[in-house]
Amino acid sequence: MDIDIFKNRLSPQYKIMQKEEVDKLLEEYNVSLKDLPKIKLNDPAVKQLNANEGDVIEINRKSATAGEYNYYRVVVK
């Protein structure tokens, strides 16, 4: 891949979460991994992050209402 899609001005910030962070998140919302929103393994952003199935990705987006907003998606096949 030659294009860095994260450099696009419309692209939000992506980050693979650490194990501890994920556990904290799941505990906060009292959910299991399957209840999180999903993102496909073949999503361009996931590919560029080199994330694996089961990883949780933190997406920091600009929000019209909240300024900034974190969204969490689990990588699935």
Partner: peptide, 21 residues
């Protein structure tokens, strides 16, 4: 009541309207 939007147990939005207001 934790302000998350859900369908069954799965999460659709982590905070209602992103700002929870």
């Amino acid at each position: 009541d934790d302000l998350s939007v859900r369908m069954g147990s799965s999460i659709i939005q982590f905070k209602y309207g992103e700002d929870g207001l």
